[in-house]
Design a binder for these strands. Structure first.
Length: 631
DNA sequence: CTCTTGCATA
């Protein structure tokens, strides 16, 4: 969860600028067409393989020993359980464990606990497995306290917890982000001697480090495994490879991948899916094609998830029609798209503002009998919000409740953002209260959204109140929040207060990022304090925070508006040297100066280069803003 | 009979 947050925050920061200064764009556009042609041909290729190993393994897996009726829902479980309680003699503990295990697999953890309690009433003994399932259920319900008291029960009953029990506990601590305690159990296992960690123990802990964003700790543990008796296997490698890919450290991931293969460990479709997703996110189409070819040459066949990644990637490149073609072909070739595939497609239409087509996909999902979940609703709601169709978005919120789906924090945050963006601050605040009344707690991002809305609409006192409320809860107030507040103060022309808050950041243990600097510089410029603005420009570079295209545009506009033309020209020179170009509004100012014969006309073409890329899809704009062109 | 790994949303 934390890692998700870190990742989302990074993404949000990097998507700060919406202009595109990159000249990579045209090349990307060209080769992603090639990529698309490849994906299309790819189907014909891998499906002409004589055997279908994916299907054959699946049928093997679907033939378990049938000594129990198959349980597909909780009611069935309760019925079977009741019948078992009436049998004389009572069935063995193992039979009861099987029921509990199946209910746990259905993720009905509180049902497991109540069944366990019934077992106690009926005086059915329990063993190590029963208690392990119980611990696992408490873990998944985020009730580690109860899990630990069950562990106490082991010792009271003279039972010895086994490696499953410890693995379950380690995982429990990890899902609650308590990495230190998880590692503590691991260390005790090593020191204790009775129950040594196995591959699952290592795999779980490695995943925990990865979730915390600590790839190096994960790799350290991998190295430790290499020295010990329990050698690393595919799962551990795949976990780290996936984590590296998610952090866009694809080169590191590929290195680990080849290292793994050198040790004779064969990758599977999961390993390839992670890598393909990683390279696709970076727009490295050639590499994606290479990996797709490589996996097929090893008789590893792409599955629905592989194609979901491809569909999602093609959609994020703005080529939804082409993605639709891929989905069509999947169906023809017998790979049934799942709700993730359709959801990616729907999001593709949403991000282009083609809401009626998005709605069509939604209806298609319904007609195919796919279970529509909160995720799907959030995607569609987001689409309507971005298209400023708030009535439709709100209708969907009510519709999901009617269908028994529980709107979550993301649902409400999306809607709050939508309301703010159309200036309906009252509605936004009402939703903010409603979510809390429904037990959905606002997170840092929800606060950021509402604070931003209030600040942009000059409701500074309400914003301050909200900020205090946020500090009161133990939410991690990050630089994004302060940046929003500083911007709010600037909008309200309280530059002095903005600067005070800005200067207090280091004492709060926070470092301003490019956006924070840009906002502060802009505020100072508007206040006519250009020399202070320039001091900040120098300061940010000294502190290792490189200015971007926005920084230069902001400060150049400041100097021009302040009639400091000479200084403006020096900065234009600097901007061009660094490979950034002027945006529309700066260009207009410069042209005005040009008309007054104050600018060397030779500079003009440089300033306007590659503005033709402004129509690229959002995803590419975001990415390009991370790597401004430096040719 | 019990534990771990891959895809999508603000």
């Amino acid at each position: 969860m934390l890692k998700m947050m870190i990742r989302t925050t990074t993404a949000a920061t990097s998507s700060s600028s919406c202009y595109c200064w990159s000249s990579r764009g045209m090349n990307c556009l060209h080769s992603n067409f090639t990529f698309l042609v490849f994906v299309n041909n790819y189907f014909a290729f891998f499906h002409s393989q004589p055997s279908k190993p994916i299907k054959s393994t699946r049928t093997q897996l679907e033939q378990p020993k049938r000594d129990l009726p198959k349980i597909t829902n909780v009611e069935d479980a309760f019925n079977v359980f009741d019948r078992m309680l009436q049998m004389r003699p009572l069935p063995s503990v193992v039979r009861f464990n099987k029921i509990l295990g199946q209910v746990a697999k259905l993720k009905h953890y509180s049902a497991v606990i109540s069944l366990y309690n019934q077992m106690g009433v009926s005086r059915i003994g329990h063993d190590v497995c029963t208690l392990t399932i119980l611990i696992n259920s408490y873990c998944h319900l985020n009730q580690m306290g109860f899990s630990l008291s069950v562990l106490g029960k082991f010792y009271k009953l003279g039972l010895e917890p086994n490696v499953f029990t410890f693995n379950t506990l380690i995982n429990g601590f990890l899902v609650e982000n308590r990495v230190a305690e998880a590692a503590g159990i691991f260390n005790k296992m090593i020191a204790g001697g009775n129950c040594q960690p196995d591959a699952v123990t290592y795999g779980t802990l490695v995943k925990g480090f990865c979730m915390k964003g600590n790839n190096s700790a994960a790799i350290q543990l991998l190295r430790k495994m290499e020295e010990g008796a329990c050698k690393p296997e595919l799962v551990v490698y795949s976990t780290i490879i996936d984590s590296l890919c998610k952090d866009t450290l694809v080169d590191d991931a590929l290195n680990l991948f080849s290292e793994m293969m050198c040790k004779g460990i064969a990758p599977d479709v999961i390993t390839y899916n992670s890598l393909i997703h990683g390279v696709c996110k970076l727009g490295e189409w050639k590499e994606a094609v290479r990996l797709l070819n490589e996996m097929v040459s090893k008789n590893i066949f792409p599955n629905v998830r592989t194609f979901s990644v491809l569909v999602d990637t093609i959609c994020k490149e703005g080529m939804v029609l082409e993605a639709e073609g891929v989905v069509e072909m999947m169906i023809q070739r017998g790979i049934e798209p799942d709700m993730v595939t359709y959801c990616s497609l729907m999001d593709g239409y949403c991000s282009r503002g083609e809401m009626s087509k998005a709605r069509k996909v939604f209806k298609l999902m319904l007609s195919k009998g796919l279970t529509i979940d909160v995720f799907n609703y959030n995607t569609l709601i987001n689409g309507y919000c971005k298209s400023k169709m708030m009535d439709e978005a709100m209708k969907l919120l009510r519709e999901m409740s009617r269908k028994g789906l529980v709107p979550n924090t993301v649902t409400y945050s999306t809607l709050v953002d939508g309301c703010c963006k159309v200036g309906k601050l009252g509605d936004a605040q009402q939703l903010f209260s409603e979510m809390q009344a429904c037990g959905q707690l606002p997170d840092v991002q929800t606060y950021a959204i509402l604070l931003d809305g209030l600040c942009k609409n000059r409701q500074l006192s309400t914003a301050t109140q909200l900020f205090k409320e946020m500090e009161g809860k133990k939410l991690d107030v990050n630089i994004v929040i302060y940046t929003i507040l500083i911007k709010g103060l600037c909008i309200a022309e309280k530059i002095e207060s903005a600067k005070e808050l800005f200067c207090s950041l280091s004492s709060r243990g926070l470092q301003p990022n490019v956006r924070t600097y840009n906002i502060m510089i802009n505020g100072l410029c508007i206040g006519g304090r250009t020399s202070e603005a320039e001091k900040l420009l120098i300061e940010m570079e000294e502190k290792g925070c490189s200015p971007n295209g926005w920084t230069y545009n902001i400060i150049i506009r400041g100097f021009v508006n302040n009639n400091e033309t000479v200084r403006a020209m020096e900065l234009i020179q600097q901007m061009v040297e660094k490979g950034f170009s002027a945006d529309a509004s700066t260009t207009k100012l410069i042209i005005d100066l040009l008309c007054k014969d104050k600018v060397d006309p030779a500079l003009l073409p440089l300033m306007q280069k590659e503005n033709y890329e402004l129509n690229l899809p959002r995803s590419k704009l975001n990415r390009s803003s991370d790597h401004p062109n430096k040719h």
